[in-house]
Amino acid sequence: MANLLLEIQDISYRYRMNTTPVLQNLSMSIEKGTVNTILGPNGAGKSTLLDICLGWKEPETGRILLNQHDISSFSRRQMGRWMSLVPQDEQVRFDYTVLEYLLLGRAPYLSQLEMPGPEDVDIARRALEKVGLQQLQERPASKLSGGEHQLLMIARALVQEPHILVLDEPTSRLDPGNRQRVVRLLKTLLKHGVTILFTTHDPTLAADISTHALLLKQGKVLHAGPEEEVLTSSNLSQLYGISMEVLRREDKTIVFSTH
């Protein structure tokens, strides 16, 4: 099991005492070099699960192992090097340039009073090239379009040079063209050995890029495992409560609702 990067063991979580748990006795494991999707209806606990993986929320019960060590044994900076997050949405509050914004991703490698140096700038530039925004480095980050901003957030997460890249609904606000750019980028990252964990409401996207999938309903795992075993018409119909059809062609899978 040396390939296991992240293991969630029997966790439960609730927002306030005496309320129904958002997640109940949930277990999940993520292997190195895989793309893992969490699918589920609104309110199923997808984002909460991501927050627990990141250590941002502490589960009531159970434990989380990162590289076979309990995540409580990692310092904040170590965690920042292991995992990076691409949030669903993020407002850039002050007028940072694209490059200044990207440099923030170097924080886990710098001590509290240290500033990013020329090497950090090089790493940030390379990440910008990877997402194809190199011509924008002096532009104010707040002036980018929605698609460019999504790519910028992914680039910042790459600047962290993480083992696991966590994305919260990475394509939910994108037009088809930008969605395709993000999909291509994620596929390239997978080829370079980055492990990816993401949530989505788009089963076609999940089938397109993931190797493993987890279906989450009302805080419990409905099905989990390799993508082609989990993303079936009957499983997805059960997940969303409507009739869903999965069509698989050689290298393309399309999921649609038959209502």
Partner: peptide, 15 residues
Amino acid sequence: NLLSMDDRTAFSLGL
């Protein structure tokens, strides 16, 4: 600059 980000982002950046 990092602290001007929202809590969750700042946390994920190792702060």
